[in-house]
Amino acid sequence: MHWLIHWLDPLIFGTLGTMGFIVLWLSLERWLYFRSTDPDRFDSPEAARIETTRNLTLIASLAANAPYVGLLGTVLAIMLTFWQIGEAGNLSTQAIMLGLAMALKATAAGILVAIPGTLLYNVLLRKAEVIQLQVQARAQN
């Protein structure tokens, strides 16, 4: 348990930071791709669908799972708080509340990754749909 005390925050926040970085990186890549994409370059609506939705599933998956990673960090931190209190024999309200308050920061960090990730995914998905509809309209004419 002692190793977990020292490594829990770096593991959880490192994971969430990596997830957030990947979401931002892929979102920027997709945004730049959409800005430079001409719907006339696609041969078919299916080709447009394949190309425009690239990496969107990964963005959505990371954004959807960030709160769970944060929640895992919170649950483990609460377990560590109770373990430390039990080991020290210190059943003070202050020790419990301080430990619980610090444990919740992981959930907050997970939510901070999830909200912008979900917003970016929705914006990018809409841009992909618009391009797909433009290709489909052109194919019908």
Rank of each mutant, 00 (worst) to 15 (best):
G86Y: 08
A48K: 06
M79H: 00
A108Q: 08
Q136C: 01
L26E: 05
G110A: 07
A60G: 05
R30E: 01
T18P: 00
N141A: 12
A106E: 02
I96L: 15
T107D: 02
L58P: 02
N122F: 11
A139R: 06
A101D: 09
V130R: 14
M19N: 00
E87S: 14
I85L: 09
S36N: 14
M97H: 07
L71T: 07
A88D: 09
A128N: 09
D38N: 15
P116M: 09
L4T: 10
G14T: 12
I5R: 09
T118P: 04
P39K: 03
G17P: 06
R49F: 13
D40Q: 13
I59Y: 01
V69L: 00
S27V: 06
R49S: 14
T37W: 04
A88K: 14
I5Y: 11
A48H: 06
A48D: 10
Q134I: 03
A109Y: 01
A108I: 15
F34W: 06
G110S: 09
T18N: 03
V113W: 04
A128Y: 08
V23R: 02
G73E: 07
F34I: 08
A88C: 03
W31R: 03
L98N: 11
Q132M: 13
T118M: 14
F13C: 08
S36L: 13
A109S: 11
A48G: 11
I131V: 15
I96D: 02
F13H: 11
H6W: 12
A66M: 12
T118W: 13
N55A: 06
L100C: 05
H2V: 11
W83M: 00
R41N: 08
Y121W: 12
I96Y: 15
G70A: 07
G86D: 12
T81R: 06
W7T: 14
L120T: 02
A114T: 02
L8M: 11
T81K: 01
A64D: 12
I96S: 03
W25S: 10
L124C: 03
T118E: 10
T93C: 00
M79N: 01
R138T: 03
I50K: 13
